[in-house]
């Protein structure tokens, strides 16, 4: 009976540690706004978005009658950075963020007015409509390049906000449960050998999961929205996965230490008897 209880509690403890590990790693990485912003900065994502915008603006400008060089006037790297950060912030804090395109519209209006004045052209209704369509398309290009897919931030916002609302309380409950089961196991077994088993099992499961995911999915091949976004996403996932690998190694090493310690303590106990 004692052996069965010990096995059952060890089994439960392994699951509790595993779940806590997953939640703690996720909380400090992908569910952490500062971590994501740091990754965006490290990946030079702002520059890549600016480059994509340059290309997209150029594609539209070439058919607009404006000079290709005017694209540079529309690229405001500070605004791009603020908009991306604002969007990330809105996802993690469940707030609204509106991407303003007024400055782009103003610049385009100014340039179009300048070109029309220099030509002495008079605007017809058709010409005005064509200008309005062009300005709207340029604004959409900017918003789409930042947001990637309209409404995607709302979906993310809902998921992240629900997870973040409960994750802390779940982690606390799990840690309390881990302590309770560890104490119970220590009392039942009268040694700390079970800790080694728990840590080794977690190391093996995490390592198996790491191998399994890498075997079945090539993270580097993920293509979502744009190439620059995909590269950043792949790198964030790779780093996230690597954290698990480091934790598995850490659990394994601590498992060895605990096993050796439990062996020494067990020997001392038996020599006392």
């Amino acid at each position: 009976m004692k052996k069965f209880i010990s096995m059952l509690f060890t089994f439960i403890l392994i699951l509790l540690v595993l779940l806590t590990t997953i939640l703690l790693i996720s909380k400090s990485t992908i569910l952490n706004e500062s971590y994501i912003l740091k990754q965006i900065e490290e990946e030079a994502y702002y520059d890549k978005v600016a480059e994509n915008l340059r290309e997209s603006f150029k594609s539209n400008i070439l058919q607009s009658g404006l000079e290709e060089e005017f694209v540079e006037e529309l690229i405001d790297e500070e605004k791009i950075k603020n908009d991306i950060n604002g969007l990330v912030n809105s996802i993690y804090n469940n707030t609204d963020y509106n991407i303003e395109t007024e400055s782009i519209v103003e610049k385009l209006d100014g340039e179009i007015e300048r070109v029309l004045d220099s030509r002495g052209s008079v605007l017809t209704d058709d010409a005005q409509e064509s200008i309005d369509r062009f300005i709207k398309a340029m604004s959409n290009v900017y918003v789409n390049e930042i947001v990637l897919i309209e409404g995607s931030q709302d979906v993310l916002k809902n998921i992240v906000s629900v997870i973040n609302e409960y994750i802390n309380i779940v982690i606390i409950i799990l840690i309390v449960a881990i302590v309770v089961f560890a104490v119970l196991l220590a009392l039942v077994n009268r040694n700390i050998k079970f800790l080694g088993k728990v840590l080794f099992a977690n190391a093996f499961i995490i390592f198996f999961g790491y191998i399994f995911i890498n075997w079945n999915i090539n993270v580097n091949n993920i293509l979502m929205f744009t190439e620059s976004f995909s590269t950043m996403l792949s790198n964030i996932i790779s780093k996230y996965m690597n954290v698990y690998l480091y934790v598995a190694i850490l659990y394994f090493v601590i498992g060895i230490v605990v096993s050796i310690l439990s062996g020494i303590l067990g020997e001392r106990k038996s020599s006392k008897h």
Binding site: F11, F200, A203, F208, S259, L261, S262, G263, G266
Partner: peptide, 25 residues
Amino acid sequence: KAMKKSFKATISNLIVALIYTVVIV
């Protein structure tokens, strides 16, 4: 003797942990 016991404890822990891993997976 303590070293031998520690080694034995580590190996037995590893084997038991592997069994738990297989069951959980």
